[in-house]
Design a protein around this nucleic acid. Structure first.
Lengths: 405, 405
DNA sequence: AGACTTAGTTTATCCAATAGACAAAGTATT
DNA sequence: AATACTTTGTCTATTGGATAAACTAAGTCT
């Protein structure tokens, strides 16, 4: 939508700047805010007065004097409302009730046995209702629900394609909005995770961030200039289907050599197949077909084995780490992010994956890209997506105006 | 830089909107502009009055009446100034003098024999001076110079690394600004090409565009939401070093299986090596070492061969096309652009490359990404980078304010 | 106690967008 | 040709933001 400039826009922009400054750097005095933002003291005073009235900001009493009148400190009022973040996983539905700063008030989860939409809706209801009931009495109440789903989501919140759930074209947003009567944001699990890490985790204060979520597949959430990049239609980030082996393993997507076949839990199946076939080889059709089915072992089981010193398992994780590094290198060279954050269930095996991953990146990434690149694992653990989803709702509630010259 | 809102910003924004609307959709009447932008008629009148005074807009006389007073049509005055775009190639320096709408007024080029910076400066001077002298007398004169270079450029216009020129840390921007006394913009050749195609070529009106420039290497220019995406430090787009073969050919960058070893002119060397070694194989160390040197044949020579029906050459181009398609698929899945534009010297062999490229993309790209994806070859041919570079200068001159809610 | 500092508010001013009235310049109808 | 209607573009008064500067409030330092 094209936006023209008028005074309402100016006010919206400046109010958003003031709120954001207090939220991120608070507690601050009005004068601090004025100096940090460049806005006039009077402007800050007026806008904070409105924010106080809106209960989004609180005065927390006098601060330290630096040789004159004591400042009245301002703080973002994270208790002005609450949000619910939901991660719809393939086997598990997790949800958290948070305040506006991502503080967790209550969590619930339930296993997801069947994948039909009705079962999933029931599971979502099951985890959400207790949170709704436990929600504290706040000025704004529940401001929204964010959901991270394992699939592609379009701009209208329709789940276009979620292979691991067998879903196509499910209008989750409409359904949940009707059910709970609050705004709902649906996004890809990796995008939610990226938002979570960027806001509350390992990616704070990072402008250009790529979050790589490795589990049963690989997805990436890309944050460009502080904002989720969604691409032309909202499908960006399907890096799991980046081919790192032009004529490699056949993927269910129809392509070959997809990254996630080598560097996610999906790789387990190939390792299993190669254990059975002594003459195992990617070109061995039998092994490959066998492998394209789901792995029989879970990360939990395999990390136990690795901890017991099982060499083949450790070697497998080393190879997965190397392949993760190869794919990440591709993203680094193409995107030049400031930081890469790796998360998802696979990171339970971090211990055996990390060295090979870092080595591959160190050997293969372009020198200038590598030089100013930070790499870390998820700071929120298994909560990246849930907290990110909640933040998507908060972010939409608070609004944000951005100007670039 | 953080920007706060005030009336100056509002005016800048709206003026930029009015100018842009006239530039892109002109000729338009004031009323047309008002309706298209949503700005009040009076506002449009005031702003156009200033634009007329600034000579950036002209009144071209009355238009067709639709049952009332005839409108006074407004047109962007592309003759208000001129720009120079330069492409610093490895073997050739090209330059064009353009008006503010990318219309070419004069072109010059000169071969680049030696690669030391002084020789390159001399070549740039050689092509630029005649253009300066031929520049018509305009209100603003020469508004700036844009340069596309085969390497990585940082935000300050320093060429950090240009392997094909053997340059590291050359301050081209400062040097040229001192020499010509006008603002200079330096960017990667692929970024310049992307800007050119987006503004004047195959990517007009496309918000999310990836331009793939294939020549002696591969570089990409990524346009996100109408703006060049540069990454954290300005090095984004080095997709030529995306590995599409994890343990493939050894690249001079230190990595393996880099895309450009398979899908650019660099692949010629491997084809030559494999012709000589009957037992040729990527794993054959001798062949690979031999190949890592530069190819002995040029695209011009090879396309001649292909035209003559030389089967091995045609097979080589088919393979290059397939590999191009594989890499493009990776970009499409990750980026979800609206359009991919392929350009660069390699596209002279389009005839033999295109079918395999399109087939690979059709087979391998994810269905939803493919469905709304357009793919085309450069609309500006060998002028993408030169025109894009000129546009970078124009764009900086005209300024642009963007707001997102 | 008095001088100085710092925090935050009040006041007058400025400036751009806007709605609506209006003037200008056409077309359509009688 | 006269009149009614339409469309274009300008003019005028108003609105509502930000701002600088003056001012009040409330502290510290000597």
């Amino acid at each position: 939508m094209r936006v023209t400039g008028d005074q309402a826009l100016v006010k919206k922009l400046n109010k958003s700047i003031v709120l954001d400054t207090i939220r991120r750097k608070g507690p601050l005095s009005r004068t601090d805010v004025s100096e940090r933002t460049g806005l006039n003291k009077a402007t800050v005073s007026n806008l904070t007065a409105e924010l106080l009235e809106q209960k989004l900001v609180e005065e927390t009493g006098p601060g330290e004097s630096s040789g004159g009148r004591k400042p009245l400190m301002l703080l973002f009022n994270e208790a002005a409302g609450c949000a619910i973040g939901i991660e719809l996983g393939v086997t598990l539905v997790k949800a958290a009730l948070t305040d506006l700063k991502g503080g967790i008030l209550l969590e619930r989860s339930t296993p997801l046995g069947r994948h039909d939409p009705e079962s999933a809706f029931a599971a979502i209801r099951e985890v959400t209702v207790p949170l709704l009931e436990a929600a504290p009495d706040t000025p704004y109440g529940l401001i929204g629900i964010g959901v991270g789903v394992p699939g592609m989501v379009d701009e209208a919140g329709i789940i276009l394609y979620a292979p691991n759930l067998g879903w196509e074209g499910i209008g989750l947003k409409t359904r949940l909005e009707a059910e709970f009567g609050v705004p709902v944001v649906i996004d890809n699990e990796a995008n939610a995770g990226a938002a979570g890490e960027r806001e509350y985790g390992a990616g704070r204060h990072v402008r250009h961030l790529v979050y790589v979520s490795a589990g049963m597949g690989i997805g990436s959430g890309m944050i460009i200039d502080g904002q989720l990049y969604k691409g032309a239609r909202g499908y960006a980030g399907e890096t799991g289907h980046m081919s790192i082996e032009s004529d490699g393993r056949l993927c269910s997507c129809g392509s070959r050599g997809c990254w996630e076949l080598y560097a996610s839990e999906r790789a387990y199946a190939y390792a299993e197949a190669s254990e059975k076939n002594t003459a195992a080889d990617d070109k061995n059709a039998a092994a490959a077909d066998q492998a394209s089915s789901l792995p029989s072992l879970t990360t939990r089981e395999l990390t136990t084995r690795a901890r017991d010193g099982h060499e083949e398992t450790i070697a497998m994780y080393t190879e997965i780490g190397r392949r993760l590094g190869i794919g990440i290198t591709n993203l680094v060279n193409g995107f030049n992010p400031e930081k890469i954050v790796v998360g998802g269930p696979l990171t339970e095996a971090k211990e055996w994956i990390e060295p090979a991953m870092l080595e591959a990146i160190a050997e293969r990434a372009l020198p200038y890209h590598r030089r100013e690149l930070a790499i870390s694992f998820s700071g929120l653990g298994s909560r990246s997506a849930v907290l990110g989803a909640a933040h998507l709702a908060v972010s939409q509630f608070l609004g944000r105006v951005r100007v670039s010259l």
